[in-house]
Computed example of a mutant assay.
Amino acid sequence: MTSRALMKPQMRGLLAKCLRFHVVGAFVVSLGIAAFYKFAVAEPRKKAYADFYRNYDSMEDSEEMKRAGIFQSAE
């Protein structure tokens, strides 16, 4: 009967090896989430604001709110 010796577990440098893997993974994931947020949320929001204010007339909007009765003291 042959007895096989079990491999010794890696004890020295184990934390550094695991941290290196997890830090790189966390950096890649956070970079991906930041890019997703920029292109899926921030850019469309900036475009929507730009489109709104391109044709926005504050005086016309103010007059419309006066006619609707929103401004009770400005008649």
Rank of each mutant, 00 (worst) to 15 (best):
A35T: 06
N55G: 06
R54E: 07
A34K: 09
K46D: 09
K46F: 13
V28M: 07
A5W: 10
K66L: 12
F52Y: 11
F39M: 05
F36I: 04
E63P: 00
A35K: 11
F27Q: 05
E43V: 10
E64V: 03
T2N: 10
V28T: 09
R20Q: 08
I70K: 14
G13W: 00
D51P: 03
E64W: 00
A50N: 01
Y53D: 04
S62T: 10
Q10S: 05
K46L: 13
F36L: 12
V29Y: 04
A50I: 08
A48M: 07
P9G: 01
Y49C: 05
Q72A: 14
V24M: 10
L15S: 02
F39Q: 09
R4C: 01
L19H: 01
R12T: 03
F71I: 04
C18I: 14
R67E: 15
P44N: 08
Y37A: 08
A74H: 15
Y37L: 03
M1W: 03
F71Q: 14
V28E: 13
A42C: 08
A42G: 00
G25Y: 09
L19K: 01
S3W: 03
M11S: 03
C18Q: 15
Q10R: 08
R20E: 06
R67M: 03
Y56G: 01
R45K: 06
Q10G: 01
K8Y: 03
V29L: 13
Y37P: 00
Y49W: 01
N55V: 08
A68G: 06
V41T: 11
A26T: 02
L6D: 14
L19D: 00
M7T: 13
A74N: 14
D61S: 13
M11V: 09
V28I: 13
L6Y: 11
R45E: 05
S3M: 08
E63N: 15
M59W: 11
S3I: 08
S30D: 10
V23R: 00
C18A: 14
I33N: 02
R12L: 12
D57H: 10
R12N: 11
S3A: 04
V41P: 10
T2R: 12
S30F: 06
V23P: 00
E63Y: 15
S30G: 00
P9W: 01
F36A: 15
G25Q: 10
V28S: 10
S73W: 14
V24T: 04
F39T: 15
A26E: 08
K38A: 05
R12C: 00
D61Y: 15
K66F: 04
S58V: 07
A26G: 04
L14N: 05
C18G: 08
F21C: 01
L31Q: 02
A42T: 10
K66D: 13
R67S: 09
F27C: 12
P9Q: 03
F27H: 14
R67G: 07
Y53H: 13
K17V: 00
